[in-house]
């Protein structure tokens, strides 16, 4: 069943891609193929291959249960929040929280969670910012 759904999704993607691809136009100078040729070709190929998935699906893969969806969902949210606040609160704080959070997700107890969080973020900050000369955000709220 999974493969059939996948096949369906990929087919839709292929169609969307091909339609969008065929609409590119260059007002001016263009080469004999133009910006549309490759996308259309690729989209068509993808569509054809996806039919294979639809009609000859592989046996079902193992999908993990709801608990793991939750863990994964929370992790992804954490990563996105990280991206959003990184420049605002600075590298050290955001990383501390992220690493601590991930650590806990993976089964660390309290002290490891805090320890890894602080350790990793501070160490990496100094490694990148000071040693390697690659500036990392100090956090806008700190005036960085």
């Amino acid at each position: 069943m999974t493969d059939r759904i996948t096949g369906m999704l990929i087919l839709l993607l292929a169609i969307a891609y091909t339609v969008a691809g065929s609409r590119f136009e260059s007002d001016f100078l263009t080469d004999p193929l133009g910006p549309t040729a490759f996308p259309v070709m690729l989209g068509t190929a993808l569509g054809l291959f996806s039919l294979y998935l639809l009609f000859r699906p592989d046996p079902e893969p193992e999908w993990p249960g709801v608990r793991s969806w939750r863990r994964q969902g929370m992790t992804l949210t954490a990563l996105i929040i990280y991206g959003l606040v990184l420049e605002f609160v600075g590298f050290i704080i955001s990383s501390m929280v992220l690493v601590g959070f991930l650590s806990q997700m993976l089964g660390a107890d309290r002290r490891f969670m805090i320890g890894t969080g602080i350790g990793a973020s501070v160490l990496l900050y100094f490694l990148f910012n000071n040693l390697l000369g690659l500036p990392l955000p100090a956090g806008e709220i700190f005036g960085g």
Binding site: F112, L124, L132, L136
Partner: peptide, 21 residues
């Protein structure tokens, strides 16, 4: 090193590697 230390750190480094450049 236990995974709960290694993996978060590696993830952070991945982000770093990309962002720093």
């Amino acid at each position: 090193v236990p995974t709960y230390i290694l993996m978060p750190t590696v993830t952070l480094i991945c982000f770093l590697g990309v962002y720093a450049i």
